[in-house]
């Protein structure tokens, strides 16, 4: 699971609608996999990404220290875009769990696959 996808994931337990994001990463295995650098796609996804959550997660996993504030335009920000690319597209959570800050539900991640199944009374 890329950190890009993790950044867009929220807890979906019934009734858990505030403080259900970001899911805290308790990873036992995080890997780096090279991916093609696509600055247009990164810029596009920055509109959807929650920047503070990304900074916190990247820092907690020791992947990168991202700047506090994004520049208004990403034009000419090649270095920063490459750093964000490394965090979003090349960092994969392989094993561990994602924990909801609100209801403490734990979503397991195994071989990179997130288990989002709920038991019936959580739906």
């Amino acid at each position: 699971m890329r950190l890009l996808t993790h950044n867009l994931l929220q807890c979906h337990v019934k009734g858990c609608s505030t403080n259900n994001y970001p899911l805290r990463v308790e990873a036992t295995n995080v890997v780096h996999k090279e991916a093609d650098f696509n600055p247009e796609f990164i810029t596009h996804m920055l509109q959807k990404i929650e920047w503070n959550a990304l900074r916190t997660t990247a820092s907690a996993l020791g992947v990168a220290e991202l700047p506090e504030i994004l520049p208004l335009s990403m034009e000419g920000q090649e270095e920063l875009l490459k750093q964000i690319h490394l965090v979003l597209m090349e960092t994969h959570i392989m094993d561990g769990k994602l924990v909801c800050p609100g209801c403490s539900h734990e979503y397991l991640v195994t071989h990179g696959v997130g288990n989002m199944l709920l038991i019936e009374d959580e739906v």
Binding site: L8, H12, L117, L118
Partner: peptide
């Protein structure tokens, strides 16, 4: 899908339980 090393991020999920993603993802 894992054996075939697909590029997408995979989730074990029951669509009847809803998709847990942020608005506009």
């Amino acid at each position: 899908a894992l054996e075939r090393e697909v590029d997408g991020d995979l989730f074990l999920q029951d669509m009847g339980q809803g998709v847990g993603f942020r608005p506009g993802s």
